Amino acid sequence: MASERAVRILHSVVRHSATPRLLQEMMQMGVVSKLCLVLQVDCKAKTREKAKEILSMHSRVWRSSPCLSPPFQVSYPSS
């Protein structure tokens, strides 16, 4: 339940207020890795779809970042 709410809030923030600074901070704080993890765990399809949309929206910023560990780069959605 907490993950679903968190993904919903992040989706809203990233969709309406994404700045380069916010996107960088999300990467540094591990949010992007956690969103990749949401894609791998058993959760509601809607939550998984929102996580995938967040990752896809900003893939050009996050995909090549050294903060994203190799195991999560494998599950990172392509744009």
Rank of each mutant, 00 (worst) to 15 (best):
M1W: 15
M1G: 15
M1E: 15
M1P: 15
S3Q: 10
S3H: 09
E4G: 10
E4V: 10
R5A: 15
A6W: 08
A6P: 02
V7Q: 00
R8G: 07
R8W: 12
R8M: 11
I9Y: 06
L10M: 08
L10Y: 05
L10K: 01
S12L: 13
S12W: 11
S12F: 11
V13A: 10
V14N: 03
V14G: 04
R15P: 07
R15W: 11
R15Q: 12
H16F: 05
S17E: 14
S17P: 06
A18W: 03
A18P: 01
A18F: 03
A18C: 03
T19N: 04
P20I: 09
P20T: 09
P20D: 13
R21K: 11
R21E: 08
L22P: 06
L22M: 12
L22G: 09
L22H: 09
L22T: 07
Q24V: 12
Q24M: 15
M26C: 05
M26N: 01
M26S: 00
M26E: 00
Q28S: 12
Q28T: 09
M29G: 12
G30Y: 02
G30R: 02
V31A: 12
V32D: 01
V32L: 02
V32K: 00
S33C: 14
K34Y: 08
K34W: 10
L35K: 01
L35H: 00
C36K: 01
L37A: 15
V38Y: 03
L39Y: 01
Q40R: 08
Q40C: 11
V41E: 14
D42R: 08
D42W: 05
D42Q: 11
C43P: 01
K44D: 08
A45G: 07
K46E: 14
K46D: 12
K46H: 11
T47C: 12
E49H: 15
E49I: 10
K50G: 03
K50L: 13
K50V: 06
A51M: 07
A51P: 09
A51R: 06
A51D: 07
A51S: 10
A51F: 06
E53G: 01
I54A: 03
L55D: 00
S56K: 13
M57V: 05
M57A: 08
H58I: 04
S59E: 14
S59D: 10
V61N: 02
W62A: 00
R63P: 05
R63V: 13
R63T: 09
S64H: 13
S65Q: 01
C67Y: 12
S69R: 15
S69N: 14
S69H: 14
S69I: 15
S69F: 14
P70A: 14
P70R: 11
P71F: 01
F72I: 04
F72S: 04
Q73I: 08
V74S: 10
V74I: 14
S75I: 12
Y76N: 06
P77W: 03
P77N: 05
P77V: 05
S78H: 15
S78A: 14
S79H: 02
S79A: 04
